[in-house]
């Protein structure tokens, strides 16, 4: 009877050992590897100490990142929004420039520079889909639309579609507020609520479409176009077919 807890303890310890990430193969210390990568790829715009950098004219090339924290570094690198070839460019989602190990190293290094939001833990499987939906409609749909397909903002900005985002990226974005997106702190969304939202966003990737082809899930505009450019031609085609005489019949009639 007394053996069981001991066994459990040993098992836990084993699990703990397994869960510790293996040291990065190349540089040994991930933070040092991260520093190397940072100085190489990021410091020209964000500054060697993460304080931002100015060009010759005194304009900010890149914002300070010292207090961006894990979450921001992970979000920008994982979604390929950083690095940018040119600091004038708008960050857009593309294939990440670094592999996962390098991203982990950079994230660790940026986190060590200052004091910023940590990467939120999300357990999507345990999250509450219904609550997530409510929170999504409360906080997210205004910009990203009820179906998560994104939406227009002012002056050429847009809220991106959410389907490409991985759960950890969505969670990081909620805490960071990248670009135009506002920041959602603990008061707005607790850690569990972030996971709920992420679960609903994952659901929206492939929602139930019991009605058939979703035609973009963008509401009445695509519906109107289907009506006018498919429905109306079909109806007019039927009318035309009925309302005109078949040439075959005419020949037969003359027989």
């Amino acid at each position: 009877m007394r053996v069981a807890p001991a066994v459990a303890l040993v098992a836990l310890a084993g699990a703990a050992v397994v869960l510790v990430p293996p040291p990065a193969a190349a540089g040994g210390d991930p933070e040092a590897e991260g520093e190397r990568l940072y100085l190489e790829g990021c410091s020209s715009c964000h500054g060697e100490d993460g304080g931002g950098a100015e060009d010759d004219a005194g304009n900010l090339r890149g914002p300070p990142v010292a207090d961006s924290g894990e979450a921001a570094a992970f979000y920008y690198l994982s979604t390929g929004r950083m690095p940018l070839a040119n600091s004038e460019e708008q960050p857009r989602r593309k294939d990440p420039a670094y592999d996962e190990e390098q991203i982990a190293a950079l994230v660790a290094y940026v986190a060590s520079l200052g004091d910023g939001p940590t990467l939120p833990e999300v357990d999507v499987a345990a999250a509450d889909l219904v609550r997530g939906g409510e929170l999504f409609r409360e906080n997210c749909q205004a910009c990203h639309s009820a179906s998560g397909s994104g939406g227009a903002l002012s002056y050429g900005r847009a809220a991106p579609p959410l389907a490409p985002a991985r759960p950890d990226e969505t969670a990081a974005a909620i805490r960071v507020g990248p670009g135009q997106m506002p920041v959602f702190g603990e008061e707005a969304l607790s850690a569990a609520e972030v996971a709920d939202v992420v679960r609903y966003v994952e659901y929206l990737d492939a929602p139930a479409d019991p009605g058939g082809l979703p035609i973009g899930r963008l509401g009445p505009i695509p519906e109107g176009f289907v009506g006018w450019f498919l429905g109306v031609p079909l109806l007019l085609g039927a009318t035309y077919w009925i309302g005109t005489r078949s040439p075959v019949r005419r020949r037969k009639g003359s027989l």
């Binding site: 409360e138 809220a159 082809l213």
Partner: peptide
């Protein structure tokens, strides 16, 4: 064949909420 007005995606009406692309 064509899904129209999928109200389950839009959620119940709440006067403090709105979705992008409301038409």
């Amino acid at each position: 064949v064509f899904q129209i007005n999928p109200v389950w995606i839009y959620g119940p009406f709440d006067p403090a909420e709105v979705s992008a692309a409301s038409q």
